[in-house]
Write a protein that binds this DNA or RNA. Structure first.
Lengths: 225, 225
DNA sequence: CCAAAAGTGTTGACTTTACACCCATGC
DNA sequence: GCATGGGTGTAAAGTCAACACTTTTGG
């Protein structure tokens, strides 16, 4: 009976919506095992990390140069045999990124960091495919029961942008009259005196998220369509 | 910089409803740290355990003689300093027990295993209080969005029993007309040709859970009141 | 016949869904 | 003036919440 110590790692599924597509951030592995395959950003929990979440944030920053992000613990995977190097227990995290932040990725060395559409992923290292599927489920629930959508949008956005986030995450279209009615009635949007001009057609009004009002909603708000 | 290995443990919050009270299973610690304090049943992940969940099941059986139980992963706690023995990452689980199973506990050596009402817990070891609070939140959600209530009931139960489970978990009373109407309309209860006689008053009809019908419900059923 | 818990319906308020056209802008 | 996406209202169906009394049994 072997007594190698069990190791703990963190992996993060970082979502963003770009051009009406739901995407995640992957890094290309530089070493074996699974050298040259794409994998979730992550790494070993370090004794210096004061919390596990902090370790996930640290690894995300180190590997992709993305920082200051909404992080939420997802699930811990620890089946025997999921890592050829030995017994590895992985705590997975969900991250939500704003389109604003996306520029940052470029500054990490050009090589192996990229956004991939969730609907068209490459082959992934380890059991990372399973982790992504779990995260995808979670974000679908989350967007209906929380204000998660606003973590995927820049400060100012149009109602169309907001609807596109819902449609990208849920993977289906939503009636635009009902969508707008619902959000406007909820009162969690601050109407700005600005518009966004995208082409030769009517400009769209910009809104921002009214976090205060959101917090004061009486019941767990449900944005389900 | 120290290099003791990080250790992984599992802890389980095992719920049952008895006499309209929500209770959890605790064990009294026999060794330091926190000797003689009550704690969640659990222990170290072993290299032989093929899954982490299996480790939780094993520890629950070893320490409380409770087996064959619904288990669900809750959350992983890994803050620095939460265990005086070093860096310990704990994967916590939720278990739901049927009143049937409760007899089993007696067979574990009389000493240190007991049911405690969630509303009146003793001082707990480590950060187990926090884990219990997390589990309590989770079971409240779960009972409204899943068939979890039936994992807390014997095979045959009255509508009153079912309502008592909801009331115990949610910590509030529910209108009995609305409650019955809702469940009977849902069609997940099988009406039996038996009644339960509890005293000198009208006997109550017994029901069982129709898992088949439940699986076929079109939308995530919501038992919220 | 009494005590105790089992069982039963209706109404009004609100929410949800389905559905199609006009508006404002740049070119 | 046309192409493009922005923006708007209503009616019917369904769901939810509030509310009080009758029934059945054993003793």
């Amino acid at each position: 009976m072997s007594h190698e110590p069990i190791k703990v790692t963190v992996d993060t599924v970082a979502f963003a919506v770009q051009e009406a597509q739901l995407e995640i951030l992957l890094v290309k592995r530089k070493h074996d095992p699974y050298k040259n395959l794409w994998a979730l950003p992550g790494g070993f929990l370090d004794e210096q990390d004061t919390t596990v979440e902090q370790a996930a944030a640290r690894e995300l920053l180190e590997e992709t140069n993305v920082g200051n992000v909404y992080l939420e613990q997802l699930f811990t995977f620890g089946d025997k045999g999921r890592d050829p190097r030995g017994r590895v227990v992985t705590v997975s995290y969900l991250a939500l990124l704003r389109q604003d932040d996306l520029e940052l990725k470029a500054s990490s060395d050009a090589s192996g960091v990229a956004w991939w559409p969730v609907m068209d992923l490459p082959k992934l290292a380890f059991d990372h495919r399973r982790i992504v599927e779990y995260a995808h489920q979670r974000i679908k629930y989350k967007i209906e029961y929380s204000a998660a959508a606003f973590s995927l949008l820049p400060e100012k956005f149009t109602l169309r942008d907001l609807q596109s986030v819902y449609e990208a995450v849920l993977g289906r279209t939503i009636d635009n009259r009902n969508f707008r009615k619902r959000f406007l009635k909820l009162g969690v949007l601050k109407e700005l005196d600005e518009t966004s001009q995208q082409g030769s057609f009517r400009p769209a009004r910009l809104y921002s998220f009214a976090e205060q009002e959101f917090e004061q909603l009486p019941d767990r708000p449900v944005f389900s369509f």
